[in-house]
Design a protein around this nucleic acid. Structure first.
Lengths: 121, 121
DNA sequence: TGTCTATATAGACAGGAGTCGATGCCTGGT
DNA sequence: ACCAGGCATCGACTCCTGTCTATATAGACA
């Protein structure tokens, strides 16, 4: 039996039994360069950004930008608010933490200890 | 000119000029549940994991697992080493930090301050 | 050398995702 | 009431990707 030989020098590893569908879904939302640029722009604006400004800054047609904003909104990363004829997007509170937490689940690090680390800095 | 009206109450936001292709590429690699499970398994093993164990733990055929491992390897997150007939995968040193750094680029936080925060915990 | 096992590669296929043009909805102004 | 502009939705198209089967490669062993 060959597996006996391997086990002797490999000590086979408890494998992850859970599924990572939720985390993968978050990463998928960030897996597009244009969408990531939209998210980064809003994140670094530390406030709200008008859709018209986002559209103007991207080499995409308006419906495509609207589609990306919808994806970001529906996964819970962004919030939108209409004022007059314009729509403004902002980060959902805790969005960045949610992303770091997803990474921590993957890396096997508790999100509590990570937040403690960030708070100490 | 309508934009004048909007500018008065929107103060248009410096938009991100850089492209986030590199970061989006990293997130894309993690955007598949099976691939994320593979990565999490290896990350939490704190060492190397045999391909045969990964294949046994997933509801996928062997070539599909091999494909996912290739993707993780070619993006720089995993390293592979052959010993006898078996191949072992491990995390590339700094892989987790690279992912957090990518998030920090998006969130507008310097990776230096983040690492300092983690080191202090 | 021949065979068996473990892994990688090649090719094909189906479903998903990004993009666009056309159109509809909402709001403000005339 | 009508028009104009900003944004969302719809439908279609194309490319990408995850998956499979079939096959090749590499190493161990007889």
């Amino acid at each position: 039996m060959l597996s006996r030989v391997r086990d002797a020098q490999c000590r086979p590893a408890r494998l992850q039994s859970g599924d990572f569908t939720k985390q993968a879904g978050l990463f998928k939302v960030l897996a597009d360069p244009h969408r990531l640029k939209i998210f980064a722009t809003i994140a670094q604006a530390r406030g709200e950004v008008c859709v018209c400004d986002i559209t103007a800054a991207l080499p995409l047609e308006q419906p495509t930008v609207s589609h990306h904003l919808r994806v970001l909104r529906e996964c819970g990363l962004l919030l939108s608010e209409r004022r007059a004829t314009w729509v403004y997007y902002r980060l959902t509170p805790g969005a960045i933490d949610a992303l770091h937490a997803a990474l921590d689940v993957v890396a096997g690090r508790s999100s509590l200890s990570r937040r403690a680390g960030r708070a100490a800095s």
